[in-house]
Design a protein around this nucleic acid. Sequence first.
DNA 1: CGTCTGGTTGATCTAGATCAACAGGAGTGG
DNA 2: CCACTCCTGTTGATCTAGATCAACCAGACG
Lengths: 238, 238
Amino acid sequence: MAEMNASHKCATCPTRHKTEWSGLSEAELAAIEKVKSARYYEPGEVLFHQGDANDGVYCIQDGLVGSRYVDAEGNSALLQLANAGTTIGYRSFLTKLPHGSSAEILSPSFVCFIRSSALSKLLIANPQIGERFLQHAIKDMEDIEIRLARSLLGNLRNKFLHVIMVFYQQNGYRDKNNNPIVELPIKRTDIAEMIGSKPESISRVISDIEKKGLLKFDHRRVHITNMDAILYEVGITL
Amino acid sequence: MAEMNASHKCATCPTRHKTEWSGLSEAELAAIEKVKSARYYEPGEVLFHQGDANDGVYCIQDGLVGSRYVDAEGNSALLQLANAGTTIGYRSFLTKLPHGSSAEILSPSFVCFIRSSALSKLLIANPQIGERFLQHAIKDMEDIEIRLARSLLGNLRNKFLHVIMVFYQQNGYRDKNNNPIVELPIKRTDIAEMIGSKPESISRVISDIEKKGLLKFDHRRVHITNMDAILYEVGITL
DNA sequence: CGTCTGGTTGATCTAGATCAACAGGAGTGG
DNA sequence: CCACTCCTGTTGATCTAGATCAACCAGACG
């Protein structure tokens, strides 16, 4: 999908309304347009590395980017996923500290980049952009707090089901018979890394869940066969 | 300590410089003074409950407050600790959503309260308060992201050592012989809840760590006997 | 075709949970 | 002052979810 997108002007960006840059004037957009660069990325490419100094923020027009943290022993975890309309790297832009995790392209993506120096000027001229960042930060935090709570309390199965449901909320749809379906945007290994587990364990949990009739897996396509049971198990709170 | 503090005016608040309210003018402080209320709390008291609507923000002048999340099965986790100078409850103030976790007093605390309606007015009049909240949110997020990464990757021992070191950074001191010491501000059960574990396991990990000569425990007083080994094990990254 | 990457399955091992008993204070009340 | 209870923490015995190691399989792709 990313590669077929012809226009990459902010003014016509299909996902701009979801970004921090929504609601800016024509002139302001033009200003951003002038300082931004943009290009297409392949899966596996890296926008910035853990420990790098911040050089600006990246706005994902289309695709999927994960922030990956690697510890001293080389174990890695996927801390966050960012999809179309999301700006990443704003955290270390604001703190002036090095990136705490790297940003890695997970599916083919088209990403715009705004250099720090330019962004600083924009922020001074447009205080409401700062407010957008605050809203964004709060949303991210909510997100990550849920993940923390679940990772502290839940078992593998529960955490896995939660991830599936999050994907369903974002990308889910219904087939002709009105049955709910999700296409998983990432491979199992990466799902494992989102919940602190290993691919083998994911496999086992999947076959268990299929046996219980909650989900039906066809490669990356997941049929949700017992929504109620899943929602009950995942819990509605937080 | 909390109970001996005589003055509870913002203007003379000993921890104001650490709060979002630092750098306000005399007049602005006076405005806050007029709308705030404040009182002393005993451990176990609750500032707000998970699921409650937001009614304002709480600024901790002295003491320790934990945000506790309880899931459907009744398992609880301590997601965050907030000490003197920290304002809590700002998240759901900004989102207008119910509190995602409850705020529970962990040590005797003196806490000020600013009602939402009043705070909204303050925010409009003083945009820089919003900016403080952004800074605060970013810091909180950094914090919670580290916890998430560790909870996804680390073993119990590593996570435990990490919380000890965090406490040391906040409250640690040196005795007459220049040996580093921390007083743990919370009981073991609560430490367990911070890292998704159980008190028994904490006990075992403690005796193991003592055996290895890294730390020496005397009730809540912890002597750090091998700082280098601990720092190495905890890792410096992120 | 081989080779690679992603995924599954089986056998085994282990960190940490669970269950249960007990120990040391700190209050409280006689 | 002792007896009692409550609360926090420790220790021991056992159990289990999930990690680890290893083999294998199916597509994709040059």
